[in-house]
């Protein structure tokens, strides 16, 4: 093992410690639950609108929660560019996937054969596409639990292929698993990193005493 590997491990440890609070799991899990709820067959239109706006609000307050909750416990850090560029890569990737699906639907690019295939094996395809996406995101972010969510996604979507059930229940289940695991992580995080006593000395050790 050489020094460069140790430094990489040091950086990785710092990065992982910043994301072990479970906040991202709770936020994404809740958003998935919300998405599943508005897809329920009996949900009326105004609830759909309420849930949609709620998910937008969640995305907006995520960074604020991280700053208000995580930073006082573990501190503030800015990682090197390669970490930030990976997040950007994931965002671009998700945008491209959305765009491809939108174009296929909007331009009617599905061939009759493909349409028949999707009618028969649609849920199997969905299970592996969603599972694969989680694996990819887990790989790019180095958060291995996201790969675990990929396994959960396959486990909740695959049975739809064989048992008739509305797929919104599977989406809700996936979101609930993520939210629940996020809560477990959050609980552990709070126990491991209690909020630091915010004495002036701790916040700014260089500041001269005023008296």
């Amino acid at each position: 093992m050489n020094e460069s590997i140790n430094l990489q491990q040091l950086e990785r440890k710092a990065y992982l410690s910043y994301h072990q609070d479970g906040v991202i799991d709770i936020f994404i899990g809740s958003a998935i639950v919300t998405f599943g709820l508005f897809l329920l067959p009996w949900v009326v239109e105004y609830l759909w609108m309420a849930f949609s706006s709620l998910s937008i609000i969640w995305v907006l307050i995520y960074a604020g929660v991280k700053r208000a909750f995580t930073v006082p416990r573990i501190g503030y850090v800015e990682f090197k560019k390669h970490r930030r560029s990976r997040v950007m890569l994931i965002a671009v990737l998700l945008f491209i996937i959305n765009l491809v699906f939108f174009l296929i639907q909007a331009l009617g690019l599905l061939t009759p054969e493909l349409r028949i295939f999707l009618n028969v094996y649609g849920f199997m395809v969905l299970a592996f596409v969603v599972g694969g996406l989680f694996f990819l995101i887990g790989f790019l972010t180095e958060l291995h639990r996201v790969m675990g969510y990929g396994v959960v996604a396959i486990a909740v979507f695959l049975p739809l292929q064989f048992y008739p059930m509305h797929f919104s229940y599977s989406i809700i289940l996936l979101g609930l698993v993520m939210t629940a695991y996020g809560c477990v992580l959050l609980f552990r995080f709070i126990r491991k990193y209690p909020k630091e006593n915010s004495g002036v000395e701790h916040e700014d050790p260089w500041e001269e005493p005023t008296d």
């Binding site: 140790n6 430094l7 990489q8 040091l10 950086e11 440890k13 710092a14 410690s17 930073v71 006082p72 573990i74 501190g75 503030y76 850090v77 800015e78 990682f79 090197k80 560019k81 990193y193 630091e196 000395e201 701790h202 916040e203 050790p205």
Partner: peptide, 27 residues
């Protein structure tokens, strides 16, 4: 130094958590 070498920048609390040093030592 090793932590600061692999990070862009960090505050006192983050360095304290990562290094395990006390406030006084770190300061």
């Amino acid at each position: 130094m090793s932590h600061l070498y692999v990070l862009d920048r960090a505050d006192f609390l983050f360095l304290k958590r990562q290094t395990g040093l006390t406030w006084g030592n770190l300061s």
